[in-house]
Amino acid sequence: MNAILHAQQLTKHYPGSIALDHVDFTANAGQSIAIIGPSGSGKTTLLHCLAGILRPDAGAITLNTPSSPLRLDTLGDAALSRLRREEFGFVFQQGMLLPELTALENVALALMLNGTDRTISENRAAEWLAALGLAGMEQRRLGELSGGQVQRVAIARAQVTGARVVFADEPTGALDSATSNEVLDVLLHSVAANGRTLLVVTHDPNVAARCERVVELRDGRIVADTGNSMSASNLPAQAGQAPSSQAAPGTQAASNFKGAYNV
């Protein structure tokens, strides 16, 4: 399997505490990975660092794109913002959708932000909503949908742009168990069907049990990893292009990418 996202010696401090303590982590393309651990173990911080939302204090994060590897930790704010828009999708517990927009507009907006025409965006958004069981609800505002339906909208929005990695933070945290299972089905199936990588932070053992790989954090360190057959040191050829050597700041490949993502 190919590594798509690779973190090396990630460290992140908050005042008075260490959230990530020299974490090495590799996500393979097409894999579904659950990140579990008690509150304060650093799992959301890890997710935010990998997604380019937070900057680590130290360490390297590399995204393998089809052309060449990209070092997230060296990108500027605008480039990171564009990366999150184009390469990543997000399904968080709440608040990631706009309450004043309809379901259709929320999904279409993700495409419109990338410069897609509104009509094309809305058509694609409608296809995604229909595929996730929301046909006929396109024109409803978020307040008129149930919690499970809102999360389906978020799942559609996360993938409509063709994002290669989907980050989910407690996606079923606010739902009852039956709805939770439905939403999880939709998330896992749609991500797998489209060959995307899923990283999901969760407290829920049922969610973790349904992912291909489970990574457990405690006090900012990875203490268990069911998919750790492949450590950072023996990554396959493509991942070998990645971390510190070729993609280091100043190399041609890195500057090409930074150019491409600079807004």
Binding site: A51, R84, R85, F88, G95, L98
Partner: peptide
Amino acid sequence: ASTLVALDRVGMPQKL
């Protein structure tokens, strides 16, 4: 504010 933070996280440019 919380919506703005969320939009920033999903990559909406601030100038937008």
